[in-house]
Simulated scan of single mutants.
Amino acid sequence: AFYYNWINLFYPYNKQYLDEVSYLEKDAYVPNYEKAFSFLKANRTDPTLVFLYSVHTDHAGHKYKWMSPEYIRSIEEADVEIGRFIEKIKQEGLYKDTHFMFLTDHGGINYGHGGVSTDEMIVPWGITGPGIKKEFKITEPNNTVNTAAVILHLFKVKQPLSWTGEVIKSIFK
């Protein structure tokens, strides 16, 4: 399932291969968390991948400046919704067998991004779930292209040879 609120994010994907797609306009994202939760409940016995994207944090960086109080507040708002989402998953009995990945595609400076500064290039990338080390910090180089490789590894799917991403083996117990 693919839940998003930035239209450009979906252009390269073929919707016929997804069971559910939900696009929300004008930075709305909270309804997609409820849709994602319903999708997880309905597919609880099947291997399931849910992608949840919230663009409002990026927009806050562009509008108010990266690391501004407004930008930080947008992250805090997303954090609250993620917490509610995870709590529902726990109450539904889906938590212990679920992996969660939290990441962003870029950082930012001033009102933009796209350069090669550390603040633009180094981004949060985290994972938790069964078989993942707790309180572990990745020390080797990591790249967002590794995300797909790790997901395939979790689903025990062979990675296509043309992919450049690598499985970060140090994250596993």
Results as ranks from 00 to 15, higher is better:
Lys88Ser: 08
Phe85Pro: 00
Ile86Leu: 15
Lys88Asn: 14
Gly126Lys: 11
Leu103Ser: 06
Trp125Asn: 07
Thr104Gly: 09
Gly107Leu: 00
Gly115Val: 06
Thr128Arg: 14
Pro130Leu: 09
Leu103Gly: 04
Thr128His: 09
Met121Val: 09
Lys137Val: 15
Asn142Trp: 12
Glu77Trp: 00
Ile132Tyr: 09
Ala78Gly: 04
Asp79Ser: 10
Asn110Gln: 11
Asp97Cys: 02
Val116Ala: 07
Gln91Ile: 01
Gly112Arg: 07
Thr144Leu: 11
Ser117Thr: 14
Ile86Arg: 10
Met101Pro: 08
Thr128Asn: 09
Asp79Cys: 08
Ile89Trp: 03
Glu135Thr: 09
Phe100Pro: 01
Tyr111Leu: 11
Ile127Leu: 12
Gly83Ala: 03
Gln91Pro: 00
Glu92Phe: 04
Phe136Gln: 05
Tyr95Ala: 09
Glu77Tyr: 01
Ile132Gln: 02
Tyr95Cys: 05
Ile122His: 14
Ile138Arg: 05
Leu94Arg: 04
Lys96Asn: 14
Glu92Asp: 08
Phe85Trp: 00
Glu77Met: 05
Asp97Thr: 13
Gly126Ser: 14
Phe136Val: 04
Asn110Trp: 10
Trp125Ala: 10
Thr118His: 13
Gly93Thr: 07
Ile122Trp: 12
Glu140Ala: 11
Asn110Gly: 10
Asp97Gln: 12
Ile122Ala: 07
Glu92His: 05
Asn142Pro: 05
Leu103Lys: 06
Arg84Thr: 03
Ile132Asn: 04
Pro124Asp: 12
Glu92Cys: 07
Glu81Phe: 04
Tyr95Thr: 06
